[in-house]
Amino acid sequence: MRGLLYRDMKCVVYRTFWMFLYFIIMDLIVTVVFKMANTDEAFKIYPVLMAGMGALFFIMIQIIPGEIMKTEEKKEWKYYLISTGLGVEKIVAERYLMIFLINFATYVFAYLLMIIFFQLADSSTTALIFSLANGVYICLLGLNLLIQAIEMPLGYRFGGAQSDKIRVAILLLFLLPLAAYLLFGDIEWLAGENGFYYRYREYMEDPELLTSAAVSYMENISRIALLIFTLIPHLLVLCYYLSYKISCKVYIKGVKDNGFRETA
């Protein structure tokens, strides 16, 4: 399994390295610009912009599993892998472990970047806002894993070339209802007079206000909703496991169908 991990790492190491470097440079540029502006108004937007950059990073890192899959098919490794006698379960488990590690490394990297650049900017960012940004990252980590849990079995079955299309379709499946909700739904809580958008500046000026808003939100949220919220991480683990099991089942069929078609 170590060898397979090493192989996958070799496949994506340069791409991942450049992605990481790109985000370091982008974060640095943003920080320098805000530091030069050095106004209170600018620093109120700074945490949101940094959290947004991190979110973009999470979206971009999603291409990595598809890249590994495509390289694997291009080099026809799957035939050799089956002949090694490792067993489909171990071969697939390695890929799932690799994807988890890449996503987790992304989270840790984004988290560290946030700490470092918030310190460099010397912004008056409070721990609460920092925790909120961290919460966004954790949600994105979960979302990435969920998307990849859906994408992987389909990628194994229909080939790596289809992997990108499947990912875009899944993203659209998430984004279209969200866009529809933002356009036509009741977004009083977000853009209303007392909504988050208009109160953002107040929150940044007085973090206590944000704390009390968060507490009151938690008090008003129904217990059923809270229970569902607590179930999400466990369901995500279950999804990941089920996805692994499905991938194991479709692996051989996928190698036969897609392998022959691509090499023909």
Partner: peptide, 13 residues
């Protein structure tokens, strides 16, 4: 019981 389950679920996260 519901509250107890909820508290445990929150802890399990």
């Amino acid at each position: 019981v519901f509250d107890a389950v909820l508290n445990n679920m929150l802890m399990s996260v």
